[in-house]
Design a protein around this nucleic acid. Structure first.
Length: 655
DNA sequence: CTAGGGTTAG
């Protein structure tokens, strides 16, 4: 009788454990105890698993105590369950005690330990332990490959994968799923296609995980058409998995893919059609949409989505919080970004990094340094992106010493190899304050002269500090490294012209022409009542062009009265257009500003976006306008924000 | 019927 009771309970428990109803399992366990039914090892393992996925350290410990008190035999399976439970609930002390007392250990035991090292980021230890395993089963390989990849040891992960194939271990669907994620993160389309062919041959392309990994791999490799093809073909062959987690995840991948590829319209369209078709929109999709809004600067849509999400009563998690912070910061509302940051309770590295990068592009250097110190004191490990934010902040605020210190910290303490972005920040750090020779020295010392980005950064600094000699020299470098970039040609020919070296100027121009180099036309846009209005220099296509030009004319006259002078003589002018006061007066950002002023109430901030850097004259224009009209103007150019208020700019003349 | 591994968003 009693025996049958236990069997019935066990079947119930294992069923609910399998479908993931952890709460029900714990309830059943309580019932068993109340009724005096003694659970067997099967039940106990399931219960422990539920405790770890619910992070119920207390309940699990209770189970452990109960096992010891009731003299239940601790076989290796049950001990492994306990071990895994302690590890997952981050009670490493108890895990260690238990491990040392274990008489029998099998491959599962070692796999749990390897997984633990990988979760705490200790890849070396994990690999070391993996190498020493006498018996490596598929799961051991899967764990180490996946863990190495998650810790961004991508090359090692790939090497291990090849080694696994050579070793002759049978690859299962989990291996392929991991391999597809790896191919995606390496942006290795060829590898991805090979895996696609292999899973197809094995007939495991119907596996939900594989299906989504395939879709996501094509998205990440920028091949949206292939991704959509996989999705449609699967729906056709196996029927749509309506509103299942599988379907939501695949659409989530597609939307984020569109956004990554800059196809914002497609992303927004897919989003609205999902809403219309009542396909569930989960938080990952919302997160992607918000980050799309951040990247194309449509604040109003983003705010609407944010409000909608807020109304449904969901809490903002670290993922969504980061993208909201990013959006508000990139759209110029640093205050809102900071508010989101304060309201988000689980702060991880990415959330911190979003906040740091947000402050950095707004020029809040000191603030960033403080934040960075508090990250470290909170025990959060910064990543490579965090350092980009910190270094950007230092360079924008002229904090040379701090910048150098953090660059060293990154290399020496955290062991991150600097990438182009970090080097560019460093060159900027020196160049921005006028230490042009130091910047040059830095480039040579670090052996990064083949990176065009660092030279472009140096060129900007030459322009800022009006060092014509060095600018000329840097232009020559860039002409070789980046023959299709129009900027250096134009600047170089301007320099030659000023020095009356007409022939050279003509040579540069014709070289540019023969190489088919096209200028990137300067463009500014402003969002008014959910509508984006774009302007190019001297634009006459806007329906209210007459009003705009008339107002701009009037405004410039009034600005002159309070001291604004058009800066027409500057050879080092940004490259948007030809020189000349008339053209300068109609730069796209001025047109956008004029339109913003005449079409909104006098309280509202003006937010303008521009695809190039703002030029010196426009920068002055904005300062005087903010003073004259008492209005805040925010210009987001390709590099950073300029926050104009009472005649001053937040960039402190560094840009 | 029990232990270890896989899919999306910043």
């Amino acid at each position: 009788m009693r025996q049958r009771d236990v069997r019935t309970w066990t079947i119930l428990v294992s069923y609910f454990a399998r479908v993931g109803s952890d709460g029900v399992v714990l309830e059943l366990f309580k019932d068993m105890q109340n009724k005096g039914v003694v659970p067997n090892q099967f039940t106990l393992s399931s219960v422990l698993k539920c405790c770890s996925s619910l992070s119920e350290l207390r309940i699990g410990k209770g189970v452990h105590g109960w096992i010891l008190r009731n003299g239940i035999t601790l076989d290796v399976v049950l001990e492994n369950s306990l071990l895994d439970f302690y590890v997952k609930c981050k009670d490493l002390g108890s895990a260690k005690c238990l491990f040392e007392l274990m008489e029998e250990r099998n491959s599962v035991t070692w796999n749990i330990l390897i997984g633990t090292h990988l979760n705490t980021g200790d890849v070396d230890k994990a690999v070391d332990m993996f190498r020493k395993l006498r018996i490596k089963d598929v799961t051991s390989w899967n764990i180490i490959i996946d863990g190495a990849m998650r810790n961004r040891f991508k090359r090692i992960a790939l090497e291990l994968l090849y080694e696994m194939v050579k070793h002759g271990t049978f690859l299962n669907e989990v291996t392929f799923s991991i391999a597809l994620v790896l191919a995606a993160s390496l942006l290795d389309l060829e590898l991805g296609k090979q895996i696609h062919a292999a899973v197809f041959r094995m007939g495991i392309h119907v596996d939900d995980f594989i299906r989504n990994s395939l879709i996501d791999m094509y998205c990440k490799c920028g091949r949206m058409e292939l991704s959509l093809k996989v999705l449609k073909k699967m729906d056709m062959d196996f029927g749509r998995k309506e509103n299942s987690i599988v379907e939501i995840i695949s659409w989530s991948s597609i939307i984020s893919g569109f956004i990554r590829n800059g196809q914002f319209e497609d992303a927004f369209k897919t989003f609205t059609s999902m809403v219309r078709k009542e396909i569930e929109v989960d938080r990952s999709i919302i997160t992607s949409i918000i980050s799309g809004c951040a990247n194309c600067g449509v604040l109003e849509l983003g705010q609407q989505v944010h409000a909608l999400f807020h109304k449904t009563g969901h809490k903002v998690d670290a993922h969504l919080g980061s993208s909201l912070i990013d959006m508000y910061a990139k759209c110029g509302n640093l205050d809102d970004a900071q508010m989101i940051f304060k309201q988000t309770s689980d702060r991880n590295v990415v959330l911190w990094t979003s906040m740091i990068s947000g402050c950095a592009i707004h020029g809040q250097g000191r603030e960033v340094v403080q934040q960075f110190e508090s990250i470290i004191s909170e025990g959060i490990k910064p990543n490579e992106v965090t350092f980009i934010g910190v270094l950007t902040a230092c360079s924008h605020a002229g904090l040379i010493e701090e910048g150098c210190r953090y660059f060293r910290l990154m290399k020496e303490v955290y062991g991150f190899k600097p990438e182009v972005e970090h080097f560019t920040c460093m060159v900027d750090l020196y160049g921005r304050v006028g230490l042009l020779d130091e910047a040059k020295k830095f480039i040579h010392e670090n052996g990064i002269h083949q990176m065009s980005a660092v030279w472009r950064s140096l060129l900007s600094s030459c322009r800022l500090h009006k060092d014509i000699e060095m600018a000329e020299w840097v232009c020559e470098k860039l002409l070789h490294l980046e023959p299709l970039d129009a900027g250096p040609y134009i600047l170089l020919s301007n320099i030659c012209t000023t020095k009356q070296r007409w022939e050279e100027a003509a040579e540069v121009r014709s070289l540019m022409q023969s190489r088919g180099v096209k200028k990137n036309p300067g463009q500014s846009w402003i969002e008014i009542k959910n509508q984006v209005h774009a302007f190019v220099v001297g634009d006459r296509s806007h329906p209210r062009k007459d009003e705009i030009y008339a107002y701009l004319d009037k405004l410039i006259k009034r600005l002159r009265e309070i001291g604004y002078l058009s800066d027409t003589k500057n050879v080092m002018q940004d490259v948007e257009e030809e020189q000349g006061e008339m053209v300068l007066a109609f730069h796209s950002e001025k047109l956008a500003a004029a339109y913003g002023i005449i079409s909104t109430s006098s309280q509202k901030r003006i937010r303008i976006m521009k695809n190039l850097r703002i030029c010196n004259d426009c920068h002055n224009f904005m300062k005087y306008t903010s003073q004259l009209l008492g209005r805040e103007i925010i210009v987001r150019d390709i590099r950073r924000f300029h926050h104009f208020k009472h005649g001053y700019c937040s960039c402190g003349e560094f840009w």
